[in-house]
């Protein structure tokens, strides 16, 4: 059955519309879907897409590790400044410097590489130096003699703030015992010496206790709840020196 020219045109136009619609469908569908879901839904759609991209990218990274390479020879451009071999006719020319005689170098000792700058003192004006070892609350297991104070970081900091350090030539090896009254706000309200000695270590202990009082009253650290029971008691420090 033959078609009229007008019918042919109509079929052709319809076919064109159908083919075009079919080609546009993948792009139109998400738009329709998004419109149905509203703005909140737009995120819900966008995120999984973006995730996929991210995941693919990361997989791509994992799937393509840097391939191991064989050792590569380093190529170097020829040295333009290289002087020509032969005898120079320049009477003012100085002889070329000879390379070091490698035979004289003994390879058995490593080239020293320590940097002297690391031996610099923290403060050259400080005649006795500063205690440079920082307090580590987690390492204060030696703090306290009693089970109740042993290992507690708050007591460890108290000890640290005293900076007990008798002079090198201090005489004596006694064990003075000094005590403090700690208030809940962290200030020290009173001190006493439960055991005094008659050597230099007594002065060192008194100095240490004064330093602690000053440090804590200038910058109090509130007593933690689990230690408040000690604010009604004397907290005593037994001073001793490490054998040299």
């Amino acid at each position: 059955m033959a078609l009229e020219e007008g019918e042919l045109h109509a079929f052709a136009a319809l076919g064109t519309v159908l083919v075009s619609a079919a080609m546009m469908l993948p792009f139109l569908l998400p738009v329709i879907f998004v419109d149905r879901c509203g703005n909140g839904g737009a995120d819900a759609v966008r995120d999984p897409m973006e995730d996929m991209v991210v995941i693919e990218a990361s997989l791509a990274m994992r799937k393509n590790p840097k391939k191991p390479q064989q050792p590569q020879k380093q190529f170097k451009a020829p040295d333009d400044t290289k002087k020509p071999d032969g005898v120079s006719r320049d009477e003012n020319k100085k002889p070329d410097k000879k390379p070091d005689d490698e035979k004289d170098k003994k390879p058995d000792v490593k080239e020293p590489d320590l940097d002297i700058s690391k031996y610099k003192r923290p403060d050259s004006d400080d005649p006795t130096g500063k205690v440079t070892e920082p307090f580590n609350p987690n390492a204060s297991v030696d703090v306290g003699r009693d089970a109740e104070t042993k290992g507690d970081p708050y007591f460890g900091k108290l000890k640290n703030d005293m900076n007990y350090q008798p002079p090198e030539i201090a005489k004596g090896d006694s064990n003075p015992i000094g005590c403090i009254r700690l208030e809940p706000d962290g200030k020290i309200s009173d001190t006493k010496f439960k055991q005094t000695t008659d050597d230099d270590l007594q002065i060192a202990a008194e100095t240490a206790l004064k330093q602690l009082v000053k440090a804590r009253n200038d910058k109090p650290e509130e007593v933690p709840a689990h230690l408040l029971q000690y604010t009604s008691r004397w907290i005593c420090f037994q001073f001793s020196v490490k054998p040299s």
């Binding site: 306290g144 003699r145 009693d146 109740e148 108290l158 008798p166 002079p167 005593c236």
Partner: peptide, 12 residues
């Protein structure tokens, strides 16, 4: 409440 303070002889 006893806390041991163990120092080292050092300094001037």
């Amino acid at each position: 409440v006893a806390i041991e303070v163990n120092g080292q002889k050092k300094g001037l």
